[in-house]
């Protein structure tokens, strides 16, 4: 299985703490891959290594290789800024820019790329908000502040903002942990619709969520990748004892 993103002996550290240990995994294109595991198992750190966001934390570093379409994003020649334009990210807590309008939030990335043509920006706003299933709810007040809408809407706004720069991969770091079940369901539906166009990796502490939406699931424990495979197989017939213990709720 040749993946969109392939990691090779990927390790991540916070100072002396070895948070992610020797991960080899392959994230397939146009599918949803979930990463599950107990708190502190390194799942968020792993996903942040995939667009070089791990290293923006003080004292954090990564070692090993991560191939995006066969090119190592940790190559010294590679510009992390370029990587992040291809691999978008949505975070645990919705983080729209509070001083910007809904409209400006969506096109923030486009503006960074120097896009000034308002027609194109208008198109981007409509397309991205529709993709994020938010258009109908906000189309009449695009001038309102990005933080004037509900938490669930803010998170979809962040998804729209990430999609607006037309990334190839979308990483989501526990995107629903701050949301209620209805908002969560909306985001899950949305991700399901998006996977035709994008490669999606989602970190979640919610096993049911992984079971509902993911095509593939990875189980991590203490910084190590314990098991990785098709979601159905991993949940119904896990190979590793640790995986079985975790999904049956015997620890974690």
């Amino acid at each position: 299985m040749e993946g969109k993103i392939v990691t090779e002996r990927l390790n991540a550290f916070f100072g002396e703490v070895h948070a992610v240990k020797n991960i080899n995994m392959s994230i397939p294109a146009n599918a949803i891959t979930a990463i599950i595991g107990p708190s502190g198992c390194g799942k968020s750190t792993l996903i942040r290594c995939l667009n070089r966001m791990h290293e923006v934390v003080r004292g954090a570093r990564a070692a090993g290789k991560v191939y995006l379409d066969g090119e190592d994003i940790y190559d010294p020649e590679t510009d992390p800024v370029e990587v992040r334009r291809k691999v978008g990210m949505v975070f645990q807590k919705p983080n729209p820019f509070p001083t910007m309008s809904i409209y400006d939030n969506v096109v923030a990335g486009q503006r960074l790329n120097g896009e000034k043509d308002w027609k194109k920006l208008d198109e981007t706003v409509e397309r991205s908000l529709k993709l994020a299933a938010l258009w109908d709810e906000v189309k009449d007040h695009l001038d309102a502040s990005g933080v004037s809408i509900s938490g669930g809407q803010q998170q979809r706004l962040c998804i729209a903002r990430a999609l607006a720069v037309e990334p190839e991969v979308l990483l989501l770091d526990e995107p629903c942990s701050a949301l209620d079940p209805i908002a969560t369901a909306k985001i899950e539906d949305l991700l399901f619709d998006l996977k035709d166009k994008y490669t999606i990796a989602i970190v979640t502490h919610n096993m049911q969520q992984a079971a509902r939406i993911a095509d593939f699931t990875a189980f991590m424990y203490m910084g190590e990748l314990i098991e990785f495979g098709e979601t159905k197989k991993l949940f119904e017939n896990p190979v590793e004892e640790l995986t079985e213990k975790y999904i049956t709720g015997r620890f974690g």
């Binding site: 923006v56 992040r84 990210m89 975070f91 820019f97 960074l112 990430a162």
Partner: peptide
């Protein structure tokens, strides 16, 4: 300014300068 604001800008492909302007100075 919360780090989540800086990360929002960086994850969109902002440089350090752009994220300072976009996320930090405006906030």
């Amino acid at each position: 300014v919360p780090d989540s604001q800086r990360e929002a800008a960086l994850s969109l492909g902002a440089t350090k300068y752009e994220s300072t302007r976009m996320a930090v100075l405006s906030y």
